[in-house]
Nucleic acid binder design. Structure first.
Length: 564
RNA sequence: UUCGGUAUGGUGUAAUUGGUAGCACGACAGAUUCUGGUUCUGUUAGUCCUGGUUCAAGUCCAGGUACCGAAACCA
């Protein structure tokens, strides 16, 4: 991806450059992205992916994809496939370097045997409860296990029998022999192997003991020849343990550097909370367009380039920061503005009839596909005397600075004609059912030969040519910036935005939209960026999801005028 | 009360390692515009606190304060 040198290096890149300068790894840079296949990736992971793959690319190195699949009871093939798909979609490639912690199970076991032989690991036969209580607390040191001084030969035999399946789950485990009084809890004889008589998604039934993450992770990095293991802050106090294992084993020592995980306003990013939203039906699934998952964002119409630009821009630090989604949306709009073809869609239609339009006449007008990209060309849009315009683009009592339709106010129909509303027809309830207007034939195409100016331009669709479609107007999932701040338990759910999805079934689409492919992105002029829904859009059944609205400075002005 | 971390405008992020606190987003104001979009210009506002060293401190020293993480046979 981005391989240009940067002006300001974040602290991780600075450290990498120091290592390159000192020759610590012979100038080699090799990173990895190590997800656990027990859930879907979200934007937070995108930050880690961009970092690890980005750093490797910038320094001529490599980045591996490795699944940390050390817990067979939680991990599934489905997630393995989805994660690979998401990483690729984001734009990264691990070549032939796809690994699984489970690839290393035998090697890990052999190394465990070496530590037992060295006298720095032992089989503990305490119950899980005893182990927990004897670990002590943050403030009080732990107590040695009565099995801590078993002879090497006995430990070796017991470990072999653990592997052979002679013991029940929880009957015993293998522990590193470090220091039960260590101020860092991770060093209080951490568990290396536990018995789990569970089928593993890759190794099947060949193992009944599985390595703990802490025992596997550092060595897997080492086995793969990783130089820089970039991970999030919560593993900072695990680093001494990883270093200890590596040193005891005398194998290649990667360098772990920790950074703050991504947090965003107006959403939640914990696996547990996201799962809850899926399970209680708040959202439609992991790929619901409101979800901060990569799949959700993909369906919402986010571009990989926008997500990457965001990740590049926010930088890397150890400060526990919460980024404003507005910044993500900024990069999204920036990318979409450059690349999206424009179309006209009336989201909430009201009929506009031109009383002076020649009966039966259809005028094929030229519309620019993308003003930001002259190469995108133009298209023909049919114009007739019966149109649909946005209900909200007409006001009977126009406020100050109103540039749109109002009785007697001339406006331009984009790429069409200047029109002036003359009268309004309402139904019995007082709801407007039709606007009647006249047009200036000389203004065809949108300009008047006499140089006369109009104050506003609005979008429209010819009634007889319009395609009916469904619009799903998505917005931020939560109504407040920090949904989890200062709340307990399920309190964060009270902050869910009631209108994060508004469905508009009667939208009128420009005819060319009929043939849009699922996943195709557009800017609906003056409304927002939309994408043809990946699941539900199809021939004869147009469904578009709103990716993000256009900035609306009129809405702000109007609100201010209302206050005054 | 233990150990490990972190503090720079509203939100993030830089500062050649002791030398004019910069950039982005946001907000606000204006210009341009056949999208009240885009683009352009300007304004706004910051070094956690208290001392100390120094000609000079965001940066060095001392002492505070606040916040985050850590006590799964999870990762």
């Amino acid at each position: 991806m981005t391989t240009e040198p940067r002006d300001n290096l974040d602290f991780i890149r600075q450290e990498v450059e120091k290592d390159n300068a000192s020759g610590r790894y012979g100038g080699r840079v090799h990173t990895r992205f190590p997800p656990e296949p027990n859930g879907y990736l979200h934007v937070g992971h995108a930050k880690a992916i961009c970092l690890s793959f980005g750093v490797a690319a910038e320094y001529g190195g490599l980045c591996n994809l490795r699944f940390d699949d050390t817990n067979p009871t939680k991990e599934e093939q489905e997630y393995v496939d989805a994660i690979q798909d998401d990483v690729r979609w984001l734009g990264f490639d691990w070549g032939d370097r796809l690994f699984f912690a489970s690839d290393f199970f035998q090697r890990l076991y052999d190394d465990a045997v070496r530590l037992v032989q060295k006298g720095v690991a032992y089989v503990d036969s305490q119950s899980p409860e005893e182990i927990r209580t004897n670990r002590g607390s943050l403030y009080v040191p732990g107590r040695d296990s009565p099995y801590r001084n078993r002879p090497v030969a006995e430990n070796l035999e017991l470990l072999e029998r653990m592997r052979a399946g002679d013991f029940d789950e929880g009957a015993c485990c293998l522990r590193a022999r470090i220091d039960m009084a260590h101020p860092n809890m991770n060093m209080r004889d951490p568990i290396m192997y536990r018995i789990r008589k569970a089928r593993h998604h890759r190794t099947g039934d060949t193992w009944c003991i599985y390595p703990m993450y802490d025992w596997a992770h550092g060595q897997c990095d080492s086995y793969e020849g990783i130089t820089h293991s970039l991970c999030t802050l919560e593993f900072e106090n695990h680093r001494p343990l990883y270093d200890w294992f590596i040193e005891q084993l005398g194998i290649h020592a990667p360098r772990q550097i920790e950074f703050a995980r991504l947090q965003l306003t107006y959403t939640v990013l914990s696996k547990r909370k996201l799962l809850e939203l899926v399970q209680d039906g708040t959202v439609d699934g992991w790929d619901d367009p409101r979800m901060p998952t990569l799949r959700g964002m993909r369906r919402r119409g986010y571009t990989p380039a926008a997500i990457r630009a965001f990740c590049d821009h926010i930088g890397i630090a150890k400060f526990d920061a919460i980024h404003d989604v507005a910044l993500l949306e900024h990069f999204l709009r920036e990318d979409l503005n450059r690349t999206s073809p424009r179309r006209m869609v009336v989201t909430d239609p009201v009929e506009l009839v031109l009383t002076d339009w020649p009966a039966g006449k259809v005028d094929e007008l030229d519309a620019v596909n993308n003003p930001e990209d002259p190469g995108a060309g133009t298209r023909k849009v049919p114009f007739t005397g019966r149109l649909f315009v946005e209900r909200d683009d007409f006001r009977e009592n126009a406020p100050r600075k109103w540039h749109r339709l109002a009785i007697g106010q001339e406006v331009r129909l984009r790429y069409g004609y200047y029109v002036t509303v003359r009268e309004v027809e309402k139904d019995a309830d007082g709801r407007i059912v039709q606007l009647r207007a006249t047009h200036d034939p000389a203004s065809r195409g949108g300009d008047s030969p006499d140089g006369r100016k109009v104050r506003g331009t609005i979008h429209w669709v010819s009634a007889e040519h319009a395609v009916d479609g469904e619009l799903r107007l998505y917005d931020r999932l939560f109504a407040v910036e920090h949904p989890t701040r200062g709340v307990e338990g399920d309190g964060w759910k009270a902050h869910l935005a009631p209108d994060s999805l508004v469905v508009r079934r009667g939208a009128k689409l420009e005819p060319s939209l009929r043939d849009a492919e699922p996943g195709a992105r557009f800017q609906f002029e003056r409304v927002g960026y939309f994408v043809a829904d990946l699941r539900d859009h199809g021939p004869g059944q147009p469904v578009f999801d709103r990716t993000v609205a256009l900035k609306d400075s009129w809405a702000r002005l109007e609100a201010k005028l209302a206050d005054a």
